[in-house]
């Protein structure tokens, strides 16, 4: 009986000691914060707040998988008790619509009106593409190109132009 009691005391003491050790080695919030911040480097836009081992994630990402990835990266860190994932998913804006291209008929008239002031230049319009040939000084060509681009063509092809 006495032996048993002695044994129990030893067990209680060692459990207590173990508990103390484990308490001492428990990571502090600041340490968790540092580790979590490092882990979140691969999740731009996400920030973490640590309190009593609970990590709260906030910020905005482009997709649900990015949100999950941030949570997974944080969970792996020692001392993290739980993760509150408050990250919002904001899908990226859709790519801009295709540019507006002027119809050939109006484009032809407009191109002819401009090119007449640029002697030495010939222009052709087909399927929204203005093809420029001839010779022109660099500064004059720049002016012409600015004017042609403003007509909303599909392309200005000047591969046949010689710039002096």
């Amino acid at each position: 009986m006495i032996m048993k009691l002695k044994h129990l005391t030893t067990v209680i003491l060692s459990v207590g000691l173990l508990f103390m050790i484990s308490c001492k080695s428990k990571p502090k919030d600041a340490d968790i914060q540092a580790a979590v911040t490092t882990a979140l480097q691969s999740s731009p836009g996400v920030t973490a707040d640590v309190k009593d081992g609970v990590v709260t994630l906030s910020g905005s990402v482009a997709s649900q998988s990015d949100k999950d990835a941030a949570e997974a990266a944080v969970k792996l860190n020692q001392g993290v008790k739980s993760v509150v994932n408050n990250v919002t998913v904001t899908p990226p804006p859709p790519p801009p619509a295709a540019p507006e291209v002027t119809a050939d008929d109006s484009l032809k008239t407009a191109v002819a009106g401009i090119v007449k002031d640029f002697p030495g230049i010939q222009a052709d319009v087909k399927d929204g593409v203005i093809t420029i040939t001839g010779e022109q000084k660099a500064d004059r060509w720049k002016k012409l190109k600015m004017a042609l681009d403003a007509l909303k063509p599909k392309k200005v092809d000047a591969s046949g132009l010689k710039v002096k």
Binding site: P99, K142, M146, D149, P153, V156, D157, A158, S159, L161
Partner: peptide, 12 residues
């Protein structure tokens, strides 16, 4: 000299 033809720039 804007010769590549890969840009149309319309800036008002």
């Amino acid at each position: 000299n804007f010769l590549t033809g890969d840009v149309v720039m319309n800036i008002n």
